[in-house]
Amino acid sequence: MQNRTLEIGVGLFLLAGLLALLLLALRVSGLTLGSGNDAYRVYAHFDNIAGLTVRAKVTMAGVTIGKVTAIDLDRDTYTGRVTMALDNAVDNLPLDSTASILTAGLLGEKYVGISVGGEEEVLTEGSTIRDTQSSLVLEDLIGKFLLNSVNKDQAN
C-alpha cells in the first residue's frame, strides 16, 4: 500500500512535468504542430531593412498572415532579401502587391506590411515582390531635414 502511494505520487510528478512542457510549448511559445506545410515562401528585396528581424510578423490590413523566416544580403544587387512564409489560406495576393517595412508604435518592433495590388496573377511559392518600400531610418530623415533647411537658408 505504501509503495502504491509512492508510485502514484511519482507518476503524478512526471505527468505534471510533461504537462508543464506542453504548456510551455503551446501556450507560451505558441508552437503550432506541422507549421512547415501550410505556408508558402515569398521573397522581397529592400534597399534597407534596418531593424527588421527574423520572426517578425507579416501583416495585411493589420491581420497577421505570415512571418519573416530569413534575412540575407543579395550579393548582386546589394539589397536586403527578406524571405517570408505566408499562410496558405491567403493564396490570392496579386503579383504587384507592395511590401513595406513598418514600425508598430513609436519605439515598437518592425514588421512587414503588404498592401494589395491589382494584377490578375497571384504570388506563389518562390515568387518575388518587386514593389517594396524600405524601412524608415530616423538618421536619414534628420539628415534630409537638415539638408533642406540649409538649402532654404542659401536660397534666402
Binding site: 510551455l24 510549448a25 501556450r27 507560451v28 511559445s29 505558441g30 508552437l31 520572426r55 510578423k57
Partner: peptide, 19 residues
C-alpha cells in the same frame, strides 16, 4: 499579454535551451 509572449518566445531557442 499572451500574444506578445507567443510572438517573442521561440520553442527551440528559449524553451529548449532553458530545459
Amino acid at each position: 499579454f499572451w500574444a506578445n509572449m507567443q510572438n517573442s518566445v521561440a520553442f527551440r531557442e528559449d524553451v529548449l535551451n532553458g530545459v
